[in-house]
Computed example of a mutant assay.
Amino acid sequence: MKSNTYNYLAIVLLLILSASCTHAISELEARRKNDKGLVEFNNRRLDNAIVLFKDAMTHKDISVNTLAMIYRNTAQVYMDMELQDSAIHYSTLAANCFEKDSYEHLVSMADVQLLNDEVQVAITTLERAYKLKPTDMPVNNSLGLIYLGQYGYDFLDLEKALLHNKQAFAMNRDGNTEYLLARNYYELERFPEAEKHFKNLSREYPENLDHTVFLGMIKYKLGANTEAEEHWNNVLAINPDYQVVIDSFKEEMEAEL
């Protein structure tokens, strides 16, 4: 009798371990594809990022937090592609993963509000989320974007943006958070800090030429025009379309003289 009981318990234990192992593998695989999608996103290969994020969603038994993270990342790519409806759809899916008025729900609902141009409403929502988790990356990332002027100059506050962008980068040193921090330093004319981060970004994500363009802008603002032109020539050799951006920047600089 004892032998049968032990055999039964052993089978149950094996089934539990097997299910747990399957869940862990699925979770790791989904996160791996999400991370690869972020690399594609940071290198501006947006179509590839979407494919990877959608593939990551198909894994069964992944945690709610992981699924919501993938939804939010997918929404971010669609925002950059200016596909508003798709961005709203995935932001809403992310919000619906969580209990109403929880931190995670508030952050995702703020994404939807921003996409609907309800910026002040989004700020109020994010402030509620910030009170719940003041050091967390997503809420600081969203507030940093708003105060950097991403959603209109009426909300521009570079010092407040820096507070949030530094915290977001401290919690998650990925390409997106570092880019926002670098831009923040650039707008504040703190060029040594901006240059340090843009140099790192250009090494980590060489296919995203925006970083090298910014390095040229920094050199130009510091009066190192020859070095600026070297950066820009490297960019134009790969993508001549950046000539419009560079010419526009030079015109703005000349107008300020």
Score class of each variant (00 low, 15 high):
173 R>N: 10
171 M>N: 13
162 L>A: 04
194 A>K: 02
168 A>N: 10
195 E>N: 12
190 R>K: 15
157 D>T: 08
161 A>F: 04
192 P>A: 04
197 H>L: 14
181 L>I: 11
171 M>S: 14
177 T>V: 02
166 K>D: 13
173 R>V: 04
171 M>T: 12
180 L>Y: 05
187 E>C: 12
176 N>Y: 13
175 G>I: 07
160 K>L: 15
179 Y>E: 08
181 L>R: 01
159 E>R: 08
182 A>D: 02
167 Q>H: 11
184 N>P: 10
182 A>W: 01
163 L>E: 07
195 E>L: 07
170 A>I: 12
180 L>A: 00
191 F>D: 06
182 A>M: 07
172 N>Q: 12
182 A>K: 00
190 R>C: 12
182 A>I: 05
178 E>S: 03
193 E>D: 14
160 K>V: 04
168 A>E: 04
174 D>I: 10
191 F>S: 06
191 F>M: 08
179 Y>L: 02
160 K>W: 04
180 L>W: 02
195 E>F: 12
183 R>H: 02
157 D>C: 10
197 H>I: 09
162 L>I: 03
176 N>V: 14
180 L>C: 00
181 L>G: 00
166 K>A: 09
168 A>W: 03
175 G>A: 12
195 E>T: 09
168 A>G: 06
167 Q>G: 03
170 A>P: 06
178 E>Q: 10
183 R>Y: 05
167 Q>Y: 05
169 F>C: 03
176 N>K: 14
168 A>L: 07
184 N>T: 15
162 L>E: 01
178 E>Y: 00
192 P>D: 09
